[in-house]
Design a protein around this nucleic acid. Structure first.
Length: 510
RNA sequence: GGCCCGUUCGUCUAGUCGGUUAGGACGCCAGGUUUUCAUCCUGGAAAUCAGGGGUUCGAGUCCCCUACGGGCUACCA
């Protein structure tokens, strides 16, 4: 069994954008496949044609690519087990449903949705909230179990609407192994006879999923915990088909929960709480826009790293992982059992760590477009220097601006609090002297500038705190920014001189 | 309601074979460095391991019960 090639699939349904919980499921599948040298497959589960959302499939593919999750086989790159879209596989499912009818594991049911609805309503009115089409109730329904063979054939030949339901055996404890939780036992009497094949000619998820996993030689099914209740059905389907010996192993991942309150994370939570739930921005066909991690300024590596640690950890204190490190250290054994609330603050911290690891060159490339937008013309070399100087202060690339704008534009105002605290009648003369001192420096760099400044202050026994802050004030407009000598070095002699004199002029009028 | 799963600092979690001052991270608070801001460093508060019973010399770790939370309960996935 263990010698079987590892083949896992991510099988989303294109009913809307994929949210971060779905991305995490895809990620864990990918990590597991790569860890074991296996295949990662994308299968689109679009058996419900009424829920099809245009653009969703494309969105899913783009999102996973952004996350650097690449498929070995799938709907967009093919493979020898295709097609990989269930609507394109429509013709193969009916024969499998028929096979189950033949061997007694399934039956035709002719009850209409309306009839079933009425029965449920009637039961509910009597306070019975648990009516289901199951081992007891099926005896009183209209199906091939209660009708004669002749009547059934008659109905079928008249093209009567029907579904095919799974026939659970009576009172059997169905055992199924979940790789994360261990053995789960459910009695068949509590399960309902799930529809396997719908009256519209399409299989339901349950049938399609099992048939496709079998046909595609899937070795492990790694999916969200919301599927745990249907694991017994799936296990029984493998048995009914006679495929138990090649049944995949199951692992149900704990859910991602809302950061506040309760319940699983949903599409609506993001913009309600001010953080993205989607990898990429999504525009619904109706025009509704939901924000994405990418557009919010998150690096793909940071996003992936963060979601990897939601429900899984390496058992070490390492928190920053490259994709390769995730692959190397991943194991289902180390996936937790309980749901995780997502913390937007920690997400920011991850991004900050990744931003810091970028080189000045990488950041400058990302920052340049933002500068262009502001109509700022500056050499890439200079931007590289500036990025290196301020990158520790930013969480997102876009933050670079608020930490460096003064390199690109003269102060438009001066912080009054600083003026009040530091400025006095002696300052203008001192700053003018500083200005000429700076213009006299021969070997102009931050070290010589710093040296020159200190020498002057000490020689004249000036109040460092006061003078330095005033110098900073006229250069950047307030009490902010990196080392003053670095600022002077980047601005250059001329610009420094201009800013000093302009500052003195304006502040003297205060 | 029924079935299933879960429960360690506010949050993510370590603790997987019973013996730990229950560790780390985010966030928070304080001090320090930085003449500024941010960073950084140091320190701190923060979990009676959901509660109660067992088993045991000894339980966060094993068993049972309860509570709470979550998922599922469609001709949706």
């Amino acid at each position: 069994m263990e010698s079987r090639r590892v083949r896992v699939r991510f099988a989303p349904s294109p009913t809307g954008p994929l949210h971060m919980g779905g991305v995490r499921t895809a990620l864990f599948n990918y990590l597991f496949a790569k860890k074991h040298g296996g295949d990662f497959i994308l299968r689109i589960e679009d058996t419900d044609q009424t829920r099809y959302v245009p653009g969703a499939e494309d969105y899913i593919i783009k999102s996973l690519k952004w996350c650097n999750l690449f498929f070995d086989e799938g709907v967009d790159n093919g493979g020898e087990y295709g097609p990989y879209r269930q609507s394109d596989r429509k013709s193969i499912y009916k024969q499998y449903a028929d096979k189950l009818i033949e061997n007694g594991w399934a039956y035709y049911a002719f009850d209409t949705p309306d009839e079933l609805d009425n029965i449920r309503k009637k039961n509910e009115a009597e306070g019975k909230h648990n009516w289901q089409y199951d081992v007891t109730s099926r005896a009183s329904m209209r199906n091939s179990l209660t009708l004669t063979a002749h009547e059934t054939q008659e109905l079928l030949s008249q093209n009567a609407q029907f579904v095919i339901r799974f026939k659970f055996p009576e009172n059997e404890n169905i055992k199924a192994i979940d790789l994360i939780r261990g053995e789960v036992v459910v009695n068949s009497n509590t399960l309902d006879d799930k529809v396997l094949f719908k009256s519209d000619g399409m299989p339901t998820y349950h049938l399609a999923n099992v048939v496709d996993d079998y046909l595609m030689k899937i070795s492990h099914v790694i999916r969200g915990e919301e599927w745990l209740p249907s694991m017994p059905l799936h296990v029984m389907l493998y048995r009914a088909f006679g495929w138990s010996d090649v049944m995949p192993q199951f692992a149900h991942l704990p859910l991602l929960l809302k950061p506040d309150g309760k319940g699983k994370l949903s599409k609506r939570d993001g913009d309600r709480l001010g953080f993205p739930v989607f990898p990429l921005e999504w525009k619904s066909p109706e025009g509704e826009v939901s924000s994405g991690y990418r557009e919010s300024g998150y690096f793909a590596e940071s996003f992936v790293n963060m979601i990897a640690l939601l429900g899984w950890n390496a058992g070490t204190e390492q928190e920053i992982f490259t994709m390769q490190e995730l692959i190397d250290s991943f194991s289902l054994e180390r996936v937790g059992k309980s749901g995780s609330k997502f913390d937007p603050e920690k997400a920011k911290w991850f991004n900050q760590q990744y931003l810091r690891m970028k080189t000045g060159e990488e950041l400058a490339d990302l920052f340049m477009p933002i500068l262009k937008e502001q109509n700022i013309n500056v050499s890439i070399e200079k931007v590289v220097t500036i990025c290196n100087l301020v990158k520790e202060r930013a969480v997102f690339v876009k933050d670079l601006w608020q930490h460096s704008y003064f390199f690109f534009q003269k102060p438009e105002s001066y912080d009054e609090k600083v003026v009040k605290k530091r400025w006095d009648a002696n300052i203008p003369a001192i700053l003018e002297r500083v200005s000429s001192l700076i213009s006299e420096i021969k070997d102009f760099n931050s070290e010589t500038i710093k040296h020159s400044l200190h020498e002057y202050m000490e020689a004249n026994q000036l109040n460092m705190g006061q003078v330095m802050n005033c110098l900073r004030l006229v250069l950047v407009g307030g009490s902010l920014g990196p080392d003053i000598a670095e600022i002077i070095n980047i601005l250059g002699k001329e610009e420094v001189k201009e800013r000093i004199f302009h500052g003195i002029e304006v502040i003297n009028k205060f």
